[in-house]
Design a protein around this nucleic acid. Structure first.
Lengths: 201, 201
DNA sequence: CATTTTATAGACCGATCGTCTTTTAAATTG
DNA sequence: CAATTTAAAAGACGATCGGTCTATAAAATG
C-alpha cells in the first residue's frame, strides 16, 4: 500500500521530537529536579530554553500536561541508567548496586547538590499537584523497584522485593539529606547500612 | 518592684502569642506539611486562619521570616513528641522507637496521608528557598538524630549515632512513599528493615 | 483630648499562567 | 510558479494571585 502524502508543511521531525521540544523537555526536567513543579515558572523555563511562549502552547495543552511528559522523560532517562548498571552481567549483583550509587554520588556532586530526584520533589508537593500525578509518580517508583528486585534475586530470592522496596524508600531520603548537607556522605551511609542489611543472615 | 504600665494599647496577650498569631502559625504549619513553602499561598492561609492580610505583615516581616518561625514551631512540636516516646523510661529502647512509629502511622492515616514532614517538604524545594532555610532544616534533623542516638545508646553504644542517622534519612523517604501510596505500609516496612538492621549481630 | 502602641483594612504593583490572534516557514498540488 | 495547506513561532493580552506597603481604627495612658 502506497503511503498517501499529506498536503502542507511536514513536521520538522517525524518522531515528534523537534529541537524545540527537546530543549523544552531538557530544561523542564532540570527545573523539576531542582525546584519541583510549583516553583518552576514557565517564563524562566522558556528563557533558558530559548523558546518563545507561543511555541510552548503549540506543543503542550497546559503546564499540567507538560509536567506529565517530564515525568515520563525522567523515568525513561532513569530507567536506562538503572538498566545500564543493574543488568551489567559481568559484575556481581551487589557490586552493580554499588556502581549505581557511586554514579549517583558523582552526579549529585557535579551539580553542587542542587539537583535532587524529580520523583521525590514532586512527591513532596503532591497535594498541590494535579491528581493524575500521584499514580504516575508511584508507578515510576514501582518500575525502579522491579528493576532492583530482578538484580537482587540471586542474593536472596525470598526477600529480594522487600529489599528493593526498602532501598528506594530510603534512597529518596538519602538524596534529600545529601542536598541538605551538601555532601554525598548520606548517600554512602545509606549504602553501607543497606548492604549490611541484605547481607545479614 | 512595681510593674510600670506601658503607654499605648496593650497587646491582646502578653506572652507574644495572640490568638491571631497562634492561628497563623497553626495554619502555616499545616500548609507547609501539606504543600511545602512555595505552593502555600498567603491568600488561602489567611482565609483559613480568619486573619486579614494586613495583620500578617504586622506580625511578620515577610513570608520568608514567617517560614523560619514555622520551622521552629514544627521543630518544637516534633521534639516534644520525640521526647515523649523516646525517653519513656518504663519501656525498652527499641520498643520506644516502635511506639513512636506507630504514633506516626496513626497521624498520617488521620489526615488521609495529605500531610507529610515539614522538614522533608522544604528540603525538596531548597533551591527555591531563602538560603537561611538550609541550615535551619539541617539543624532540626540533627536534633532528631541526637534524640534517637541517646535512645539507641543502650542497644549499641558504638553504632548508635550511625543507626540514628540512617533512621532519619530513611524515615523521610518512608513518609514520602506513604503519601504516594496513601498507605502506612511503607512506614512499617521501613520499621521492620531498620530494626532488623540494628539487631543484626 | 493628645499621645502612644497594637492591630486591622485593603489598595497596589508586579509576576505568572494560559489563551488568542497574527505572522512566518516549508512543503505539496495543479 | 502560484496557490494551497499545514507546521511552527511570535508575542500581545487579560485574569488572577502573591507579596508588600500605607493608611486607618482601636485601646490604653497621662
Amino acid at each position: 500500500m502506497v503511503q498517501q502524502r499529506r498536503r502542507g508543511r511536514p513536521p520538522k521531525s517525524d518522531d515528534g521530537y523537534s529541537l524545540t521540544l527537546q530543549r523544552l523537555i531538557r530544561e523542564g526536567v532540570v527545573a523539576l529536579t531542582e525546584k519541583g513543579f510549583v516553583a518552576s515558572g514557565l517564563e524562566e523555563l522558556l528563557t533558558r530554553a530559548q523558546v518563545p511562549k507561543g511555541s510552548f502552547y503549540y506543543y503542550f495543552a497546559s503546564k499540567e500536561a507538560f509536567g506529565l511528559v517530564l515525568i515520563d522523560a525522567y523515568a525513561s532517562y532513569f530507567n536506562a541508567k538503572l538498566d545500564r548498571w543493574l543488568k551489567d552481567e559481568k559484575t556481581e549483583p551487589v557490586e552493580r548496586l554499588r556502581n549505581f550509587i557511586a554514579d549517583a554520588c558523582r552526579g549529585m556532586e557535579r551539580y553542587g547538590f542542587r539537583r535532587g530526584c524529580l520523583i521525590g520533589n514532586l512527591g513532596q508537593e503532591l497535594v498541590a499537584l494535579p491528581d493524575a500525578y500521584r499514580t504516575a509518580l508511584r508507578d515510576v517508583l514501582r518500575g525502579w523497584e522491579d528493576r532492583l528486585t530482578a538484580c537482587l534475586l540471586p542474593v536472596d530470592s525470598v526477600r529480594a522485593r522487600d529489599w528493593a522496596r526498602f532501598f528506594w524508600t530510603g534512597w529518596e531520603g538519602a538524596v534529600l539529606r545529601a542536598r541538605l548537607e551538601r555532601s554525598a556522605a548520606p548517600l554512602r551511609d545509606f549504602e553501607d547500612g543497606f548492604i549490611r542489611l541484605i547481607m545479614a543472615p
